[in-house]
Structures are given as structure tokens and as C-alpha cells.
């Protein structure tokens, strides 16, 4: 079997963010980029499945300029078999979904896994858009996946509970919390091997972006914290009621 795993190239979760060029661009200075946390979980679980069913080729894909290659190499070091970079600035979610759909059609993949949401633009769109373009079923926010007897069994979080589903191939699943428990990190051997694994660069396909960021903002600075004495907690209740008018 073959799976296409979409890998996001995003700022480390501990990053303090800044904007530049009159607040129209994200300032990449001093930012460390990582594999998106949900994609990291997805890769981990796919490796577990590979160990279980034996025959599973994992192709990591990213749509981005050359600077995203270290992130793809990291996915190879963790255990992906090969990688594809679609050489383009990711204009918006629709643009990215179109690129991945094109790559999917060129290969003989059986299913696609993405993270449920990128931690930069928080769009939560690529996986579902891709499913619609390819006319596949989609299961979003998947918290568990297993493959058995030619079918996939997935669990997804729903409002106020969880649902277990069975789905035929092909499909798109977007991975959320719980997909795997502890993300795998590359071993020394993995890093050595990653250098020799194929990372193919392909040209972008024509697609028009539908959305554009015109300006970024940082949150307004908060006013200073008002302290209440630990021996006088009634004062907090009074403040929440009379000043904040929240209770």
C-alpha cells in the first residue's frame, strides 16, 4: 500500500512571532521551523502501521520553496520512505490542495493523511479540500487509525464524544490529537539514511489562490494583572462581579 502524507513546515510551537514589511509578512528571522505537530503524530502512527502490516510505503509531501527541504528530510529521518516537494510558494489552502491532488493522481497511492490544522495559518482546510477535489470521503480530526482486512477503521472526535468509522480506500484522513501518543524522533541511523532517500522536486500546477492576507496584527498588549491577596479571596469574587461583570 502507499500513503501520501502531507507535511507542514511551521514555526516551532515555542516561537514568539513578529511581522515585517509593514505587517504584511511573517518575520522568519530567528524562527526555527518544524514538522507540524499533527503531522508528526500522523507520521508516527503510519510507521506503527507499516511495522504491523509490512507493506506500507510512506511518501511525505510539502508544497513550498527549497527552504522547506530540511523539514522533509526530518520526516525521512523519522522513517518516511521518500519525499516530494512541489516547488511553489504556498499561496493559500486551495492552491496547496490542488498541488497535492495533482501529485496524488500521478502516483498509485491508496490514501492520504494530513494534519487536522496547521499551527501557522490555522486554516484546517487542505485535507478536506483535497478530498473534495479527488471526490474521496474525508474523516477529519481523526484520533485513531488502523488497517485490517483491506479496510481502514478510524476514530474521530465529535462534539461531546467520539465516533468509530469504517471506510473503504481511497480516503483522506486529517490527524488530530491521539492519532499517535508520543511522536517519534529521528535516530542517528535515521538521519544518515535520510540523506540517501529520494526527495523529488516537482513543478507546480496552475491554480489560482482565492484568499490573501492583507495585513497581520499582534494581539493588543494586556493591561497589568491585578493581584488579590491569597488571604482575601472574597475580593476576587467582588472584582469578577462588580468590575469585570463576568459572574
Amino acid at each position: 500500500m502507499k500513503v501520501l502524507l502531507c507535511i507542514g513546515h511551521v514555526p516551532d510551537t515555542t516561537s514568539k512571532i513578529k511581522f515585517t514589511n509593514n505587517d504584511t509578512e511573517f518575520d522568519k528571522n530567528n524562527i526555527q521551523f518544524i514538522i507540524g505537530p499533527y503531522e508528526e503524530l500522523a507520521l508516527t502512527r503510519l510507521l506503527e502501521l507499516k511495522e504491523k502490516i509490512g507493506d506500507l510505503n510512506i511518501t511525505a509531501i510539502n508544497v513550498g520553496p527549497a527552504e522547506t527541504e530540511p523539514t522533509l528530510r526530518k520526516a525521512l529521518a523519522v522513517g518516511a520512505d521518500d519525499a516530494i516537494r512541489v516547488d511553489a510558494e504556498p499561496m493559500d489552502a486551495f492552491f496547496v490542495a490542488k498541488q497535492i491532488a495533482e501529485v496524488y493522481k500521478q502516483g498509485d497511492y491508496d490514501f492520504v493523511v494530513t494534519g487536522k490544522e496547521s499551527i501557522d495559518y490555522n486554516g484546517a482546510q487542505v485535507g478536506e479540500m483535497l478530498a473534495e477535489i479527488l471526490e474521496f470521503p474525508s474523516i477529519s480530526g481523526t484520533s485513531f487509525i488502523d488497517i485490517e482486512g483491506g479496510k481502514a477503521k478510524l476514530e474521530r472526535e465529535i462534539d461531546g464524544g467520539k465516533e468509530i468509522l469504517e471506510v473503504d480506500f481511497p480516503f483522506v484522513s486529517t490527524a488530530g490529537k491521539g492519532f499517535a501518543i508520543e511522536p517519534r524522533i529521528p535516530s542517528m541511523r535515521g538521519i544518515m539514511m535520510a540523506r540517501k532517500k529520494p526527495l523529488n522536486v516537482v513543478a507546480a500546477t496552475e491554480a489560482a489562490a482565492k484568499t490573501k492576507v492583507t495585513r497581520f496584527y499582534l494581539p493588543e498588549p494586556k493591561s497589568a494583572c491585578k493581584y488579590v491577596d491569597a488571604e482575601n479571596v472574597e475580593e476576587l469574587v467582588r472584582l469578577l462581579h462588580e468590575e469585570a461583570k463576568i459572574i
Binding site: 514555526p11 510551537t13 516561537s15 514568539k16 512571532i17 511581522f19 511573517f26 499551527i119 501557522d120 495559518y121 490555522n122 492576507v213 492583507t214 495585513r215 497581520f216 496584527y217 499582534l218 494581539p219
Partner: peptide, 9 residues
Amino acid sequence: VYSGKGFAD
């Protein structure tokens, strides 16, 4: 955007 660390138009 950036999981609440910023906003964008």
C-alpha cells in the same frame, strides 16, 4: 493566526 499569537486580515 499562529494559534492565537496573531491576527490577520
